[in-house]
Design a protein around this nucleic acid. Structure first.
Lengths: 349, 349
DNA sequence: CCTTCTCGCACAATCGATTGCACAACCTGC
DNA sequence: GCAGGTTGTGCAATCGATTGTGCGAGAAGG
């Protein structure tokens, strides 16, 4: 209403305040003490700016400063509780630091990753959080070429610091829980834990498989390669593969380690075709947590990664002077079946 | 590797290509035909740019053009399947149009909404999608003052076009389904459908309550105000309120209409404390869909909003010349219990 | 051979903010 | 009364791209 035409600029304010643009600029961006602008002048300018509803043109500022005040984060998908929580944490913490969060999903597509990072660089983001890239090396190289501070989250990078959850610990814990709760049905093929989903080529999955193998070996005397099925994250793929598995071993295994929520979603779409009794002698575990998945027809043990902590440590690393590669591991948490995680203080944080 | 120092600018390319910056600019942004640059020159410049790994400084471009090439979307939260799907659709469609999507959550906080929109405006976004604002009028006013094209999604606005899902239809369908599946237990207080969660002050909730009332009246002869509990979206609040409700009516109602996923999450956190038999004579419905929620211990009828279509129509409206207020309604879809929605072609779209 | 176009491109202003530097006025001490 | 210091502010260049306009050279036409 007050604005007759368009957004006022520092020149407009300068005219109204009978000062120069540089003075106005200094006052409005807080650097006025350093420039020895008098308190009186500062207050006058401030009042006018307020009255005019001034807000800086962030593109102009960004151009001059060669940084935009935006922090980027790329992740595979949004529609998955783990990544959604990451977005949420990332946004909250970015804003707390006065930065504008920009989170973009790249659909596990290396080409899209490169394109997106290129775009973010073109907008002069101040730093980039890489959470789940299919080709982290390529992304890292782009960042290095652009001299862009970056940090890997949930996967380790070799050219910059990383914060990952302790996949080995989490998977070992989950596997151990499954084995302990395993109720044999008398069928050798089905009475073993199966590891299902994910990409053995990525760090997290490979660590989890290691832990799965080690735990099975320690507790059950061994594992067979046929107990490990990991051909991607796509729900559709998971549906096919789980059907094939059940077909092969003649029913549900007595323990199933599902490696991600998207995989679980696909698995579920097959499970819905099964009768309720099919689930009576099986125990399911899923790496990653979802509140609804915790209350399914059958018990599901879940591993909850501490996304808020992951992000917090990543911000610390980005802020640190040492840009060298190093890996910080954060312990995830086992969530028992039929348990709704409601934040550290029960407040649904 | 090829880059010795920093990002090349059009001036660098101009020097290398023995042309002027304006020529380079025209070539690189595609307007060179209009400026009658010869094909030969264009190709030469293009080759050099490619070799140098040139990419435009989008802040500079944005400053000059007074638009950034970014489209914004604000939504309440990310960690909820409905909004996550919206993000996903929004990103995909924005990129398809050559725009850079920026989606930000505002946590149902009017102050945060205003701040965020202010920031987005300061970055000169080209347009804004308002998906779930607590104070839509305030947001709209900010957009109008900045002359920013905007569209409301999932809630109607009075100063710009809107795309909403047909809340009345969806809620009527869901209520009808609940009533049809209702299995009375002989207790008058419990043998009625209850509407639970949301904010009666917002459009969607009020429409849904209308439909709930109308359907109950038509099918059961009436509703009592005590059957409608809507005190917000927060899970923690929902947990308290559902506990109070069960306490008041002496157990689970035979039909429960849950008004949002976040509410459901809170409800679930109370349900986990209940024995399995408690769910034997109840039918649950939830407005909004989540694949895991579809496979809980008890049957859940869900309404799935077509987020992809909502976004598509919103983009149409933003693109249209007519900026006036009007509302387009998109029909949502009922998802039967134990059904995993896997996209229009079963591909987990 | 002298206009009049048309081509193909370069000049220079501009977007809005930031920032190194200059400078006038005033103050201080000798 | 003057060198030297401090204060408060303005000037102008700059960030990297876009774009209205001008201009020389060659072609076309008479």
């Amino acid at each position: 209403m007050t604005s007759p035409k368009a957004k006022p600029t520092i020149y407009d304010i300068a005219r109204l305040g009978e000062a120069s643009a540089s003075t106005v600029s200094a006052v409005l961006n807080g650097s006025w003490r350093k420039r020895r602008i008098s308190q009186t002048t500062a207050e006058r300018i401030l009042a006018i700016a307020e009255a005019q509803g001034y807000s800086a043109n962030l593109q102009a500022r960004g151009l001059r400063r060669a940084r935009s005040g935006m922090v980027g984060m790329i992740l595979p998908v949004h529609d998955n509780r783990f990544f959604a929580d990451m977005s949420q944490s990332f946004e909250a913490q970015a804003r707390q630091r006065g930065l504008c969060p920009v989170v973009v999903s790249t659909l596990r597509d290396p080409a899209e990753e490169a394109r997106t990072v290129g775009t973010l660089i073109a907008y002069a983001i101040d730093s980039l959080f890489i959470a789940g890239a299919t080709d982290p090396a390529a992304v890292g190289e782009l960042c290095r070429a652009a001299d862009l501070p970056h940090v890997y989250v949930d996967l380790p990078g070799f050219d910059a610091p990383s914060v990952v959850s302790d996949n080995y610990l989490g998977a070992a814990t989950l596997t151990e829980t499954l084995v302990r709760n395993l109720a044999p049905a008398g069928d050798p093929l089905r009475d073993r834990p199966y590891f299902f989903g994910g990409d053995p080529g990525d760090y997290a999955t490979s660590r989890r498989i290691e832990a799965f193998r080690a735990t099975c070996t320690a507790m059950l005397g061994g594992v067979d390669d046929s107990q490990i099925i990991a051909r991607g994250y796509a729900p559709a793929r998971a549906r096919e593969d789980i059907a094939a598995l059940l077909d092969r071993i003649g029913g549900l295994p007595s323990a199933l380690f599902i490696n991600a929520l998207t995989v679980f979603e696909g698995v579920l779409s097959h499970f819905v075709t099964l009768p309720a009794q099919a689930f009576e002698r099986t125990v399911i575990g899923c790496y990653d947590y979802d509140p609804f998945a915790a209350f399914l027809q059958f018990p599901v043990h879940m591993i909850r990664q501490n996304s808020s902590e992951l992000i917090a440590r990543a911000f610390d690393l980005i802020g640190a002077e040492d840009r060298g590669p190093r890996v910080i591991e954060i312990a995830p948490e086992l969530i028992a079946p039929r348990t709704i995680y409601a934040g550290p203080f029960g407040e649904f944080g």
